[in-house]
């Protein structure tokens, strides 16, 4: 039994190392990818509705352990706004400290879930026209 587990674990480690070696640049974004153009069609994770990028796993780990991803995807805030929400959760809701992950998490939230200028009233959006 122990041997089996050892074999499986070593297998995972080898695959992981290979993956790291063959895709050394898969994690950091290049400057080009960081331009606003790529924001037009951000890749969305179907299970959560969250935008997929290199910070996505951190969001899953730090945020959706406790609450729905909808609380992120339905809200819009500046970097400071998101920081104050996290402060509030840490101060009153039992959320742990993010330590050195915090800047990356805030960058992600401000980038994909930042406010848009909607004026004093937006145009009506009709999901579906139907014959009455």
């Amino acid at each position: 039994m122990k041997i089996k587990v050892l074999i499986i674990l070593s297998g995972i480690i080898i695959i992981t190392l290979l993956a790291c070696e063959t895709e050394p640049s898969s994690v950091p974004l290049t400057e080009e990818e960081n331009t606003p153009d790529t924001l037009a069609v951000p890749e969305v994770n179907e299970a959560t509705g969250l935008v997929m990028d290199e910070t996505f796993p951190l969001i899953i780990a730090h945020c959706t352990s406790c609450h729905s991803a909808k609380l992120i995807t339905q809200n819009r805030a500046t970097r400071d706004g998101w920081a104050s929400m996290i402060d509030w959760m840490q101060a009153t809701q039992g959320l742990w400290k993010f330590d050195d992950h915090e800047p990356q998490i805030l960058d992600y939230l401000a980038k994909y879930y930042g406010p848009t200028e909607s004026g004093r009233r937006e145009n009506l959006a009709v999901e579906e026209w139907y014959e009455l």
Binding site: I15, T16, A19, C20, S26, M52, E54
Partner: peptide
């Protein structure tokens, strides 16, 4: 290292869903 593993799968066009 699991993170890198997932992202390598992404690069290889595996169906993430």
């Amino acid at each position: 290292p699991f993170f890198s593993y997932i992202y390598s799968m992404k690069k290889k066009q595996l169906n993430r869903r």
